[in-house]
Write a protein that binds this DNA or RNA. Sequence first.
DNA 1: CACGATTATATGTCTAGACATATATGTCAA
DNA 2: TTGACATATATGTCTAGACATATAATCGTG
Lengths: 247, 247
Amino acid sequence: MSLPAHNNELQAADRLTLYKQIRHDIERRILTGEWPPGHRIPFEHELMARYRCSRMTVNKALSELAQADLIERRRRAGTFVRRPQHLSAVLKIADIRAEIIALGRSYAYELIQCSRRAANAADRARLGVRKAGKVIAIACRHSADNVPFAIEDRLIDLDTVPEAAAADFTIEPPGSWLLHHVPWTEAEHTISAMVADEGTAAELDIAVGAPCLVIDRYTWRSARTVTAVRLLYPGESHRLIARFKGG
Amino acid sequence: MSLPAHNNELQAADRLTLYKQIRHDIERRILTGEWPPGHRIPFEHELMARYRCSRMTVNKALSELAQADLIERRRRAGTFVRRPQHLSAVLKIADIRAEIIALGRSYAYELIQCSRRAANAADRARLGVRKAGKVIAIACRHSADNVPFAIEDRLIDLDTVPEAAAADFTIEPPGSWLLHHVPWTEAEHTISAMVADEGTAAELDIAVGAPCLVIDRYTWRSARTVTAVRLLYPGESHRLIARFKGG
DNA sequence: CACGATTATATGTCTAGACATATATGTCAA
DNA sequence: TTGACATATATGTCTAGACATATAATCGTG
């Protein structure tokens, strides 16, 4: 158990670079429970010997695991497997048009209403701005295979995104337009449920009183409000989602 | 503009380490739009000169930004600001007990039903397993300030988690127990909406026909099913959530 | 025994090199 | 014009050191 420790310790393919092999090796031991939470991972100098490499290489592997919250590193004490405090899922909310097309279904878009106006009190509250600027208010509907998929009710702050005044939202959904014209924003999402009132039921072609999933998204870009949107999905077409990390 | 370029280029506090200052500096330029999507970030050797440091230091900053999908690196071509393809939010689903306590509200837990049985067809479908093993089926309710907060309907696979047979779910919520005894699982979430039927309405103390948010979570651990749970939240107590990255 | 000062040590960051590798681009021939 | 080939170059990984820094453990002292 001494000579080619290299090959004994690693079971990943050789095509991976060394630090990635180390990272995956440690990740595997954590995820399978071989090293449970609280377990002290071998010191860097021990891993150097085990994998026959320099400390920087070991450090790169451990740094990435620490960044992913799988391990915790404490000076002088060592490196420990973390206990996940909360489930954490990555919720991917694609551009609806792209999402439907990616599902291989036909996409249709209808602009229900679009107006440009000075922000009223309700608009300002929704956008979280104080002074009265101009906004675009949009209502539209996304359909997949000619069945209503979601309705969208959106405000765009024209002070932040003046280019939006020139966009043609009869052709392009505002979400898609924004995604391509106002990149790298930050957003806050709130998810809730509601029952369809008469107007909603008509727009989504469902029964009054049927459940709907609501996603409210508020988007900004370095301290300036960009847009606020409410998306309504019929409850049965259950919504997405995905991925891991957690206990 | 030549001598202490160091101080000209960076505006972050000096207490940060150099590579973090570089990372934040570049991140800021991307997030404010100074460097829009597609923009080529200076080559590593240019950043070395700009920040007066070695290539490894620049590389560490850029590697982290690449890991966060803010930039894309292509050999021979250079490093470019990425266009975010989809909104991506980190949805943190805390242990309900911990979540309520963290909100400063009083937490109460009631076990409604708990039984141990051989998995029937419905159980197997829900857990995604083929062979018939033993399961624990649990129904319980979480309350905040004596108001129903969520009801939980859960199956635990005893083949994967035999220790669960010894747990006392009259005292500890199964989610909390699992979090502390079966760490580092993976999970898939589905979010949808439904209206309360009679039973649900009674358990959540809401009206029949009121909206509910539904989170279905399926949890596994290295190819073995751990648990499947359905959480029902009254729709008004809108659900959480959070954070950024996206266009 | 309690508590403050000292020391040892594991991680955090950084350097100045090196070679590997993917690929954009230019060159040349068909 | 096009396709095959060679070349240049930016990133990817790695090394063998160095010093910094936080802190666990130890030692001394009251």
